[in-house]
Design a protein around this nucleic acid. Structure first.
Lengths: 226, 226
DNA sequence: TGAATTATGTGATGCAAATCACATAATTGA
DNA sequence: TCAATTATGTGATTTGCATCACATAATTCA
């Protein structure tokens, strides 16, 4: 845990780019950098929310305990802010965040974050834009989840990983079969079966956690109609 | 369609409360009041988004055309802003809004809205808080939708109407059976059956569109476990 | 006012996917 | 290094709900 100058930071958020000297100093005085290993919890549902988190490096899952099971609301990849809605929207976290790979984050004191919002309209503006984009993405995720059958949901998420997270058709799943089930809201058994079937049909190649997309066209078709 | 002074407006949003004289004037010059009847569309998915809408009076449904069917993402009751995410987050609307009862809104020019965000940090701040609360609500809706069975979803939405929209255990459904199906993501037939069953079990009383909650305790139980 | 359209109710049937039940592989940790 | 735990695969069974098929009620509008 260290407290470096934010001015010198090379991985500033788009919002933080707009901060001027004394604002960056305020940020620096109210922010600490912390590293997490896979599996470690960044913040927890039902706990008091007192920090905004800037995800510098790494990948996390956002999970919410629902009435029946826990659900992965979405994956978030650096760089981005985490927990703005859950921290600004209520006193208590409505969801948890857990690292999926070695991850570095800055914990920003809520008071300081609010001060920055009030000091610098450009900063606020960028936060608003990020919130808006998130909400749109969330709407689409919800519609996909509810309307598509499981093949479709699986396809959507495999494509998301390939295109948005890893920028490659070949990658290691950052999730266990159980977590993958929580992400697409089904059972572990069904995930197993579906992955095998996609493999047998020559659409993807599965080797444990290693995935290679073969027939991306077909996968996109499934993601739309399945 | 008229263009009144916003300073004199008695139903200003919490955000607009923070505007000062010349900012209110800017708002007034870039905003028109429009009335809609039930069934009329306020803005449409896939159209260019060029206005932020302030819902002064009334009730609307937010709908998104999904891969299989159209889905009611949520109901929004005045007073609130509509279309901030879809207007600030992309050039094109990702969803539509349709009036469910006689409704009055202000169309605010996007440019002017952005100017206000940049002029007044208190205004921005209130918008951020509203966005955050919406996102939390949306997360919960999504989890409910995915994890609960249809009885549970129906119960959640009946309770929402009673508690949040009408503040009464007795109300007229603002939706047809088909729309109710779009809201809880099921088929019209299933909605019919479930409503009849809840009526037969003495939990609610159904008379066409008129609903009276009888056993609220039981309904809450169903909303959690069903 | 009466025909056409749209909304609603209800039974019968089929199917996607959950659940159960178990085997086997991989990982952890003493 | 080996037992204990956890992750994964796969068959059999069950079930919630969609879908189909139709009847009837309520609206719309010419």
């Amino acid at each position: 845990m260290e407290n470096r100058s934010c001015s010198a930071c090379l991985i500033k958020s788009k919002a933080a780019e707009s901060l001027i000297d004394n604002e960056l100093e305020l940020l620096g005085q109210n922010c600490v950098e912390v590293a997490f290993e896979r599996g470690e919890t960044l913040f927890k549902q039902d706990a008091l929310s007192s920090n905004i988190i800037y995800l510098q490096k790494g990948l996390v899952k956002i999970i919410m305990q629902g009435p029946q099971r826990k659900q992965i609301l979405r994956l978030k990849k650096a760089p981005c802010y985490l927990g703005v809605p859950t921290t600004m929207g209520d006193k208590i976290n409505h969801y948890s965040a857990v690292a999926l790979e070695p991850t570095t984050v800055c914990f920003i004191d809520l008071g300081a974050f609010k001060s920055l919002l009030r000091l610098n309209t450009e900063f606020s503006y960028e936060i608003i834009v990020e919130l808006c984009k998130n909400e749109l993405e969330q709407f689409h995720r919800c519609v996909t989840l509810v309307q598509n059958q499981i093949f479709g949901r699986l396809a959507v998420n495999l494509l998301y990983m390939a295109n948005t997270i890893y920028h490659s058709g070949e990658f290691d799943l950052p999730l266990s079969r159980n977590e993958l089930a929580d992400l697409i809201c089904t059972s572990r058994e069904t995930v197993s079966r579906m992955l095998s079937e996609l493999d047998q049909d020559g659409i993807i190649e599965v080797n444990g956690k290693h995935i290679r997309l073969i027939d991306t066209k077909k996968l996109e078709e499934i993601s739309k109609n399945g």
